[in-house]
């Protein structure tokens, strides 16, 4: 057990420890910890980024929920999340399973699917904007050539804009989840499948009773990560639709950006940032508790 007085050696070790920590912790406190605390504090003020800081209690939060653009942004973000996450993970899992069938060219396929993931969202947004152009875009010209006389104007159509953004986002990032699933699949011991084959299980039964349960921890992690990622959606919306048409694709982060850096209502924008944080916090909490309850290790 430790003695009350620390020995010289221990003191030296403590000093060394702090020295090791120092370069990081200064930056950490300044650029990570302080902003988190400050975000909460600013959200209770009417600050415009300059001049006096006046506290105004919960009035930012009250205004936030009475402002229909915020409600719409919140709704759109949930729409995006619900539209993107399940579909993306299902596709990723399917492809991972196909890739896991000891086929030739695994590396090429994997690299192809991963390619959009390493590219910047800004760049691929521009590519898709051109492809989806309502009159000249190759996609609509193709649709017209095979007989759809009136194809949708995709990003310019109130009903189609969000689904289009969702599909493009799935295209962009499902490769990541394929790789994670593939790694997970490779850890499933082969004797489990052999045993299932001996029991006369068909492919579907093997999937249902071996693959899926064995992948629950990974699926769980993927769901959480994809969901958190989906709540941060900004780049593609900012570039392709600017939140439009109307407010059909305005998301929370975009709302924060607009109120903070276009209108300079720092207090109000911080309040919406805190709401975003709370959503992410709840999802993380969910993960923490769920890990214990549902996941079969």
């Amino acid at each position: 057990m430790k003695s009350k007085k620390r020995s010289k050696l221990e003191k030296k070790e403590i000093l060394t420890a702090y020295l090791f920590l120092l370069p990081n912790i200064i930056g950490f406190l300044l650029f990570s910890f302080f902003p988190v605390v400050a975000a909460f504090i600013i959200s209770f003020t009417s600050w415009r980024g300059v001049g006096e800081i006046k506290f105004n209690g919960f009035s930012n939060y009250i205004e936030l929920f009475s402002h229909d653009t915020f409600r719409i942004a919140l709704g759109n973000t949930f729409y995006f999340s619900i539209g993107q996450v399940p579909l993306m993970l299902a596709i990723s899992l399917l492809i991972a399973i196909l890739l896991n069938q000891k086929i030739k060219g695994l590396k090429i396929y994997r690299a192809l699917y991963f390619m959009p993931y390493v590219s910047s969202m800004v760049a691929v947004s521009f590519i898709w904007m051109a492809l989806l152009h309502p009159t000249y875009g190759p996609i609509n010209l193709f649709l017209k050539s095979i007989g759809f006389t009136n194809p949708p104007s995709w990003l310019g159509d109130v009903k189609w804009a969000m689904p289009t953004v969702i599909i493009m986002s799935i295209w962009k990032s499902f490769g990541y989840f394929v790789v994670v699933y593939l790694a997970g699949l490779q850890t499933i011991p082969s004797h489990l499948y052999e045993a299932a084959t001996l029991d006369g299980a068909n492919a579907w039964q093997k999937f249902r009773n071996v693959t899926l349960p064995m992948l629950t921890p990974i699926t769980f992690l993927n769901v959480i990560m994809a969901t958190i990622g989906s709540f941060k959606v900004f780049d593609q919306v900012y570039i392709m639709t600017e939140g439009g048409p109307g407010r059909a694709t305005t998301t929370i982060v975009q709302y924060i950006y607009q109120t903070a850096f276009q209108q300079f209502r720092m207090g109000y924008a911080s309040a919406s940032a805190v709401i975003l944080f709370l959503i992410i916090f709840i999802i993380t909490l969910f993960q923490y508790r769920g890990q214990k309850k549902w996941v079969n290790y």
Binding site: M129, L132, H133, P134, T135, S153, L155, G156, D157, T241, E242, G244, P245
Partner: peptide, 10 residues
Amino acid sequence: GPTMAENKLT
């Protein structure tokens, strides 16, 4: 004339 959707995107 080009629709609003088209003009916005371009």
